[in-house]
Amino acid sequence: MGATVQELLSKYGLIALLLVLPVVYGIQDLRDDGNLAGIANNLFDGLSNGAIIALIAVGYTLVYGIIELINFAHGEVFMIGSFTAVAFWGLIGLGLGSSVIGLVLGLLLTLLVAMATCGGMNVMIERVAYRPLRGAPKLAPLITAVGMSFILQNVGLLWLGGSPKSVDDLIRAQDDLFTVIGINVSRADLLAFAVTVPLVVLLTLFVTRARLGKAMRATAQDPEAARLMGINVDTTISLTFLIGGMMAGAAGLTYALYQTTIWFFQGFQAGLLAFTAAVMGGIGNLRGAVLGGLIIGCIQQISDNRISPSWTPAIVFAYLILIMVFRPQGLLGEETREAG
């Protein structure tokens, strides 16, 4: 009995905690402006921003689900995704003057390239830094993951230098497309959803329907049993890193178009946000990662907008600590077999 009460208390406690920011600033808006447009816009921007975080969070959750490793370098893979995307669209000549058709086709191609690069890179990282340590104590691969993260960060640093670099605003991201009940929907918002929603749907279908996806879930539940069932565990783990990396690549391109600024440190920041999102949703749980991403996006947006961007990391980390302590299983529970 006690356990159930605790379970409900921690779950609804967490939900209540998450509602603090929107409710406080919603009330403030009502008092100051007489309507909720301000907070509604924050929340909507938060969702589109969160869609990108969700794509990254999926990579953390997939990898954790299968080998119980916090792939610390994942945020950096995403950063490299952004860099690759910007370099590639420059290479194929996309610019402010490109035609609409050219832009659409070119960006689709860029998307594929960014996904392939990041997917491949993630697979390589697993080979080099994690696979040799599979039998070692659990902290060993975590340490190499941190090491990989620093290596990649410095690759980014050498690539584009130490300060943020603005890139061509190819899609005119901040232009509003339309306004619904006081919420301004910009091109950037639309882009974020247009990339994230199909990818997440496809991923979910893959994990639940495809043979390889089922192998992933089986390996996540019990690698030994999966091996006995004839599943090649090494291949399955590589596949997981491939998919996680591809999602990070897609997020990388979307981020570059959405923010129109990229820099070597974006991966560290976004990585920690995404990791928090994955934990919030229940690490190992796909739906949870997406939900967590959207929520973290909203928290970030409200904090950036209403408090100060410099306090955002502290606020997100405070949430992370509270969740880890009081509800380590997250909102939806740590259940890979329910993924999708």
């Binding site: 830094a129 060993a140 691969p141 190499t144 941190v146 620093f150 410095n154 640093l157």
Partner: peptide, 24 residues
């Protein structure tokens, strides 16, 4: 075209990976 000082943390990261894999 770079100075090694700029990437010192990358070098520490590399050392971490190298040590854990080769001589933990």
């Amino acid at each position: 075209d770079f100075n090694l000082v700029d990437v010192n943390y990358g070098i520490f990261g590399f050392l971490l990976v190298l040590m854990m894999v080769l001589r933990p």
